[in-house]
């Protein structure tokens, strides 16, 4: 007999993990190309705001999703121009992007506080979506959940199976070499950064139109930082980022369940678990030096300037 709480719990975990999947997979592509963008939180929150604002004003979920992605992309464009063309430091620019995004979304969003949005329709295939367990989990989700899975598959295929993906990885590994054989390091990186921004924007959109369909300042509440951690946790592999996001979401939800069942541990210690688990996994995967060198982009965080 399947316990009654199992399916709803899994559904809750899917909701908690989906924004992280979007943001982490996008950031993985940017980092694979050698760019460390610490502004994920800022791009996400702007995406959340834009999606909600457009959704409420137009009533269209599709426009809302597009607006979220576009807003994230524009934020990434600021970052890309600054770091790739004006050679500003990536770490500092990313942090500045977060400050800017949180401020701008709060400034523009004030008029949208207290409003609500209908949310996204869920897939409903008569006969199939009703199958116990499998139905609601695999055939009863909203469009963005499927999109997040598709994004993982697509990015994985792109990065590791296509020539363009190989180029992205090449500029991340050795930009001097890629440049010397005639590829535009800057353009390839800009593309990767913009993709990362659009994905972070989608993650934000998921928050404000599905997860909690409302707008309040700072509603991302640190999820952008978690996504950054997941990228490294996943050693820059989309599938591992996907599982990492579900693991992280799972631990959070199970922690809440444990409390509801009356398990008596200080909630602060339970809340530490995901972070400690990330550290342990990191140590495990980085012990083998050659393995890390295979996955970590060698030029991560380093600016490229085509000198001479």
């Amino acid at each position: 007999m399947i316990p009654e709480w199992l399916v709803p719990t899994i559904l809750t975990i899917i909701t908690a993990a989906t924004p992280l999947v979007f943001a982490a997979v996008g950031e993985a592509v940017a980092e694979k190309s050698g760019v460390l963008n610490l502004g994920v939180e800022g791009m996400m929150v702007i995406g959340a705001f834009a999606a909600f604002a457009v959704g409420v004003s137009s009533g269209s979920a599709i426009l809302a999703i597009l607006a979220g992605a576009a807003a994230g992309l524009l934020m990434a464009l600021i970052f890309g121009v600054l770091t790739l063309y004006l050679m500003s430091n990536q770490v500092a620019t990313g942090l500045a992007l977060t400050i800017f995004g949180l401020g701008l979304s709060a400034l523009l969003g004030y008029g949208f506080v207290g409003k609500t949005f209908g949310g996204l329709p869920k897939l409903d295939i008569p006969g199939i979506s009703e199958i116990p367990v499998i139905g609601p989990i695999f055939f009863g989700q909203d469009f963005l959940v499927y999109l997040s899975v598709a994004a993982v598959i697509g990015v994985n295929w792109f990065l590791f199976k296509t020539r363009s993906g190989m180029l992205v990885r090449a500029v991340g590994e050795n930009h001097e070499a890629a440049h010397s054989i005639g590829y535009s390091v800057t353009l390839i990186r800009l593309g990767a950064v913009l993709f990362g921004g659009a994905m972070a924007g989608l993650g934000g959109a998921y928050l404000s139109i599905v997860y909690t369909p409302l707008w309040v300042e700072n509603m991302t509440a640190g999820r952008g930082w978690i996504a950054l951690a997941l990228v490294v946790f996943a050693s820059w592999r989309p599938w591992r980022a996907f599982f990492g996001a579900y693991l992280f979401g799972g631990i959070t939800i199970i922690q809440l369940h444990a409390q509801g069942l009356g398990i008596d541990i200080a909630s602060q210690f339970l809340s530490m678990l995901p972070y400690l688990a990330t550290i342990v996994v990191l140590v495990l995967i980085s012990r083998d030096t050659t393995k890390v060198q295979l996955s970590a982009p060698a030029c991560l965080g380093k600016n490229f300037h085509a000198s001479g």
Partner: peptide, 13 residues
């Protein structure tokens, strides 16, 4: 207060 964030962001950029 949000104006401060935007302003700080611009200054930093």
């Amino acid at each position: 207060n949000a104006v401060t964030g935007v302003f700080q962001g611009m200054l930093l950029f």
